[in-house]
Amino acid sequence: MEASTREAYGKTLVELGGENENIVVLDADLSRSTMTRLFATKFPHRFFDCGIAEQNMMGIAAGLAASGKTAFASTFAIFASGRCFDQVRMSIAQPLLNVKIVATHGGVTVGEDGFSHHSIEDIALMCSLPGFTIIVPADAIETAQAVRAAAENYGPFYIRLCRPRSPLVYGDDYRFEIGKAATLKSGDDATIIATGLMVSLALEAARRLKGEGIDCRVLSMPTIKPIDEDAIIKAAKETGAIVTCEEHLEHGGLGSTVARVVAKHRPVPMSFLALKDKYTSSGKPNELLASHGLTVDGIEEAMRHLLDRKRA
């Protein structure tokens, strides 16, 4: 089953808007794409389209938050993070204001639009800001819960969603918790830690590896900051090897964050599946992911190499 994380966001905003009058939503001429349009239709007086002016939007969101509102601000991930970085830093992060940046079209799965629209540095940028909580949901079910959690917990959040519809990896009984990894499969030979769209690939790779007699643990890591150190340390201790997998540059994303925890607490061999250190280009989402080795095959192969290193 597939579902859209953006749609889950828009629908959850409508629910939240009905429950809480303090919720306001801002967009920058992309409300059809980010799905804030759903909220705008229902609560027009609490929706502000700022036009194609993302920096201004972040400043306005900060002012609303400083006046007691819970402000959701949405645009594409590349513009939310890169273009507005200083506005977010000065007006939202340092004053620790209650702004929830929900950025859609993250990663390279915007595909054909090309590098101007590929958001490959956003997690590094946003994780660098003290006080921010960074969440990359794996599917629509987790998105709905993460958006709700952001509304219910004070402080600045960055939630990164993707453009395509994506496979559901969680059941209805799943309970998202900020800062907690979800163990989607147990196993003791090694661990795959994945985030966002990569989680479903990780599960499929683990299923295939099991057929070869390799029993991998699969951790879904929706919160990149603050990261679930306990789950990482436990995986390092119990499985002795970790592969990370993410739709972001290797520099400063999930892999770097996990490696820091591992290096501090329990060094084990690691391998990093991520976008290579270069600018991307136009192509179909799957072609682009494949060109960076972000496939089920890629994960399997990385795991086999890693296990050789673990044994050596």
Binding site: E112, D113, G114, F115, S116, H117, S282, E287, S291
Partner: peptide
């Protein structure tokens, strides 16, 4: 246009 490997990117790219 917009194909993987094409010089004609979805948005203009002066390197291509």
């Amino acid at each position: 246009l917009r194909e993987y490997g094409s010089r004609l990117q979805g948005h203009t790219d002066r390197t291509k």
